[in-house]
Design a protein around this nucleic acid. Structure first.
Lengths: 346, 346
DNA sequence: AAAGATTACTAAATCGTTTTAGTAAAACGT
DNA sequence: ACGTTTTACTAAAACGATTTAGTAATCTTT
C-alpha cells in the first residue's frame, strides 16, 4: 500500500487545514475567501491559515464550491463553427478577455443544426455556466427565451432577435452592406449580384436590406435572378458547385458580386477560379467580413470588415458586468464596420 | 411574491421526485442511472420514476454528481491559439468527436507563453476535467509530469516529450520535411532556405532534422545563414518585418524557402508580397501545414499537409478509451503527411 | 413449515464547501 | 463594577447527488 499512498496523495481539504491549524473549517473557509478582516478573524490566525494552505498545496474543490454557491467562473460560448475565421478569432479574444477577468470558457459549435443547437444550451446550463455568449441560431429561440426569463447572464453576438430583450453585440450590418454596394456602384458596377445564406437570421436580413437600399440609392434595379441564397451548413465543395452553376447561368448578366459572409466569399472565389473567371478583370468582388485569404491572396479582396476584437471585448465586458452585478439594463451594442479597399473591385 | 415563485421555478431535485413517487431518493437515483434491473427495482417502479422525472423536467445537478463521483464529462483542450487554422480545425473536430461520445470540451489557449501555460493546466485540473488533450509548450513539462504521475487521462497532440511516457498523436514530421526538401530539390532548387520557429518543441526539431537530412540526401550543402528562426508568439507584423529583412539580406542567395508552419508561411508570403518578390518566378515556396490562403490564393502554395481530422479523431478516441477503461498502455500514434502540389514550386 | 435466498426497497453517511446562528472571552462605557 | 459591544472564533445545517449497509416481505427448497 505504500505505492497507493504515494500515488493517491489524498487531496487536501479545508478540514485538513483546519486540523493542522487547530481551528474550525469555518475559520479556514473565511480566511481563504479573503473575508478575514470582515469577519473579525485575527491577523495572526489569518496568516497562519494562509501559510498552511500554501504549504499543504490546498486547492479548493470546484464541485463543493459550486454546489454551495452556484458559481463556476466559467462562461459558455456558442458559435456556429470554431474553425471559421470569424468565430475562431472571436473565440480567441473572448478567451483572452475572460481569462483576464478570472473566467474560463467552454465552447460548443452549433453547426447551425437544429438538434445540436437545442441540446448545447441545455448542456451548458446543466454545467452551470456563470454566463453565456451566444451566436444564436433561429432554432435556439425557445431555449434563449427561457434563459433570459431565468435571468441568466447572456449576451448574443453577431446577431440577435428583435423581440428578445437580451444584451447583444453586433455590427451595423445594414449600413455596412449599403456602403459596400455604394462602393461597387461608385466604381461603375451596374449589375451587382448578391450571394448570401438562406436563413432568417437577422444579420443576414440586414445585410440583404442594406444591399437593396444600396441598389435603390444608386438608381440600380433589383433583379431577383441575381440573388443566390445558399443554405447554411453545406459542405464547402457543395457550395462551390452551386455557385459555379449560378454564375454560369447568369453569365454576362452581372459585373460584380457582393458576398455577405467570408465563407461564401471563399467558396465564390473558388468557383471563379475553377471556371477561369478572373477577378477583378471579369468580375468585381466585395465581401462582408475579412480573412487571411482576402488579405493576402492575389488579388486582395476588398472587404467590409468587422471589428472582431472589439466585439469580443465588449461581449465579455457586458457579460461579466451582468454576472457580477445583475439587474443592469440590457446593452445593445452596434459597432461600425469598415471598408478595406484592395484589388478586387474595378 | 407571485412573481418570485414563477420566475425562480425551484429546480427539482431527486428528493422531489422521490416524494412525488412515494419512494426514497436512493431508488430514484438508481433508476435514473439506469441501474434499475441490476439493483432489482421493479419494472413498474422504474417506469413510474422515469415518467415522473420527465414530467417534472428533472435535470441532475452537475456539482452534486461531480462531488460524489468525480466525473464531469468534460475534456480540457489546450492549444497554442484557437484562431490559428491548424488549431481551429483541430478544435472543431475534437469538439465534434467528443460530443459524439458524450463529452463537452473546455478550451484554453496557451499563447505559447510561460505564465499562461503553467496556469492553464492547474485551472483545468481544478475544474476536474475527465481528461486532457494538449498541444504542450515546453514550459508545461513539470505540470504534465504531475498529470501523468497522477494517472489522469491525457493525450498530447502535435508534439510530445520523448522522455514523458504519455499518449500522443503527431505526424511524421521528419519524413514530411524530408519529402518537402526532396520535392524542392527534384524540381531543381539548390539553395533552400528554412524558416522555422525558435523553439525546442520536438515537432519543430524534427522538421529541422528532416530538412537537414533532405539537404544531405540531395547533395546540397547546409548554410547556416539560410536558416531563420522566429520566436514563437510574435505578432504577425513583426514576423513579416523580420522575414523581409532576412530575405533582403540573403537576396539572390536562395532559390526556395521551406516554411515549417502555416503561420510562418503566411508571414513569409506577406513579406514577399511587400517586397515585390513573386512566387514561384523568383522564389519557390513550400510550407508545412495547409490553409485557405495556400489552397485558394494565387499562386496556390505547395504544402506538406497534415491529416488534421484524423489527428483529432484519434486523440479523442485514445483519450476516451483511457477515461473509460484506465490502465491501458500509452498509445503513440504517428500519422503520415501528404504533399499537395500546387503552383509555388518551380 | 422452517431455513435460506431473493426481491424490492430505504436510512443514513458521504463528498467539500459555505453560511447561519450561535458563544465564550475580552474590551468598553459610565 | 456591571451591562453592553466587540472580537474571535465554532457547531451544525445545507447544497444534491451516490453508495453502503441494511430490512422487511416474498419465494424456494427440502
Amino acid at each position: 500500500m505504500r505505492g497507493q499512498s504515494q500515488l493517491m496523495a489524498k487531496k487536501v481539504s479545508i478540514k485538513d487545514i483546519a486540523a493542522a491549524a487547530g481551528v474550525s473549517a469555518t475559520t479556514v473557509s473565511i480566511v481563504l475567501n479573503g473575508r478575514a478582516r470582515e469577519m473579525k478573524i485575527s491577523e495572526s490566525m489569518a496568516l497562519k491559515v494562509e501559510k498552511l494552505a500554501e504549504k499543504m498545496k490546498y486547492r479548493p474543490n470546484h464541485f463543493a464550491k459550486g454546489l454551495r454557491t452556484g458559481k463556476t467562473n466559467t462562461i459558455g460560448l456558442i458559435v456556429d463553427d470554431i474553425s471559421n475565421y470569424f468565430f475562431g478569432h472571436l473565440a480567441k479574444v473572448v478567451e483572452e478577455e475572460a481569462d483576464k477577468k478570472g473566467y474560463t470558457v467552454m465552447f460548443c459549435s452549433s453547426e447551425n443544426n437544429e438538434g445540436k443547437s437545442r441540446n448545447i444550451l441545455n448542456m451548458l446550463v446543466d454545467k452551470h455556466m456563470d454566463g453565456y455568449i451566444i451566436a444564436p441560431t433561429t432554432f435556439m429561440l425557445p431555449e434563449l427565451e427561457k434563459l433570459i426569463d431565468e435571468k441568466r447572464p447572456t449576451v448574443l453576438i453577431d446577431r440577435y432577435f428583435p423581440d428578445l430583450n437580451s444584451n447583444y453585440v453586433t455590427v451595423d450590418n445594414f449600413n455596412g452592406s449599403l456602403e459596400a454596394v455604394n462602393h461597387l456602384a461608385y466604381k461603375g458596377n451596374r449589375k451587382i449580384a448578391l450571394v448570401t445564406n438562406d436563413t432568417d437570421q437577422i444579420q443576414m436580413q440586414q445585410r440583404i436590406d442594406g444591399y437593396m437600399e444600396g441598389l435603390k440609392k444608386n438608381g440600380l434595379v433589383f433583379e431577383k435572378s441575381l440573388v443566390k441564397k445558399i443554405p447554411f451548413g453545406w459542405p464547402e465543395q457543395k457550395q462551390v458547385k452551386e455557385l459555379a452553376q449560378f454564375f454560369n447561368k447568369q453569365k454576362a448578366n452581372f459585373d460584380a458580386v457582393f458576398f455577405t459572409s467570408n465563407n461564401l466569399g471563399v467558396a465564390g472565389l473558388e468557383a471563379f477560379s475553377n471556371m477561369g473567371i478572373t477577378v477583378p478583370e471579369q468580375v468585381s468582388v466585395i465581401c462582408f467580413d475579412d480573412n487571411d485569404l482576402f488579405r493576402l491572396g492575389k488579388p486582395g479582396i476588398t472587404v467590409m470588415s468587422q471589428p472582431i476584437k472589439q466585439m469580443a471585448k465588449k461581449a465579455v465586458e457586458v457579460l461579466v458586468r451582468q454576472i457580477e452585478q445583475s439587474g443592469t439594463e440590457p446593452s445593445h451594442i452596434v459597432l461600425p464596420t469598415q471598408i478595406i479597399e484592395r484589388e478586387s473591385v474595378r
